[in-house]
């Protein structure tokens, strides 16, 4: 039996008669969709065949797309790295300069670790320290000499008293008293200047108290006389109060029309500040007195 005979037999299979009721059932089951209605369920039933046919091509396409995306991403990364490398290479000539600067900074940092000073400053500092130590030793020596001097003076005073003689005046104390009086004159001059400045701004009339002219005073220290040991000198205006004032303000509300009128007075040193800004160091024959309602320098009737 050859192929042609087999094929001829196969093309004539036994005929089959369908059941009689099948045709009626099929005709009864006809459910045509309305025109334009998508065939949803049947599409789903045919979908497996579609996917089975196209899955290899689709999967290959997805794989190629993924490879393309990966290659593109790697290429972009490579370009970015190349640009960065290029920029680093252009910055390479500055590397030596940066290294020199770094070495300099390191040396400075090491110097700072030794006190933050360069050699000349360190030498100056050591010289000053030696000077300070020398002065400290001299100060101790001076203190010892002063104590010895005081002890000798006391012994001499005792010996003179025993011999009936008068004690010799202390030349250092006189000099200190003179210096304090000069300092007092200076204070009065500054106070007078502040009062005159205030008067210039206020129709040539002096203020009613010294504190009103405080803007013209550099420091409240000048309101306390150096020889006034009973008062505490205020170092700033926050610590200042009325008890720190040693001087008498004699012409509150006065004017500059009478330059010889006494404006301020130091009761300790008998110094008088006048309305013209001058200060007089009064001697034992002079004093400040009131004449016709104004304070003036007058002769002392009981010197």
């Amino acid at each position: 039996m050859n192929d042609a005979q087999i094929e001829a037999l196969l093309r004539h299979p036994p005929s089959l008669t369908p059941p009689a009721a099948l045709k009626a059932r099929l005709l009864n089951d006809i459910r045509l969709p309305r025109p334009g209605t998508p065939a949803g369920s049947t599409l789903l039933s045919l979908a497996p065949s579609f996917w089975r046919r196209w899955f290899p091509a689709l999967s290959l396409g997805v794989l190629l797309l993924g490879c393309f995306i990966v290659v593109a991403w790697q290429t972009s990364q490579g370009l970015a790295l190349r640009r960065e490398n290029q920029s680093l290479r252009t910055a390479l000539p500055d590397l030596d300069e940066l290294r020199a600067e770094q070495a300099q900074l390191k040396s400075r940092l090491a110097a700072a670790g030794q006190g933050g000073l360069d050699p000349t400053e360190r030498a100056e500092l050591s010289r000053l320290r030696e000077e300070s130590a020398r002065l400290t030793s001299r100060s101790a020596e001076v203190s010892a000499l002063a104590a010895e001097n005081k002890r000798l003076r006391a012994e001499m005073a005792a010996a003179l008293a025993k011999a009936g003689l008068e004690a010799e005046p202390d030349p250092f104390a006189d000099a200190q008293a003179r210096a304090q009086r000069v300092n007092c004159v200076n204070n009065l001059k500054q106070i007078g200047l502040a009062l005159r400045i205030w008067a210039t701004d206020n129709q040539d009339v002096f203020p009613m108290d010294l504190l009103s002219a405080s803007n013209g005073l550099v420091t409240p220290k000048i309101l306390t006389c150096a020889g006034d040991t009973a008062r505490v000198r205020a170092s700033n205006w926050q610590e200042f109060n009325g008890s720190s004032v040693s001087y008498e303000y004699l012409s509150p509300g006065g004017n500059e029309q009478d330059p010889q009128a006494v404006l301020t007075r130091c009761p300790i040193h008998n110094n008088a500040g006048l309305c013209d800004g001058s200060v007089q160091m009064l001697n034992t024959n002079q004093q400040v007195g009131r004449i016709e309602g104004k304070w003036r320098i007058v002769n002392n009737p009981n010197p």
Partner: peptide, 22 residues
């Protein structure tokens, strides 16, 4: 089988009508 063939034929046409638009 006769019964199976009849059922399968009915299912075939049952799938064909909704998919006729495709």
């Amino acid at each position: 089988q006769d019964e199976d063939a009849a059922d399968l034929t009915q299912k075939t046409f049952g799938k064909a009508w909704p998919a006729l638009a495709t």
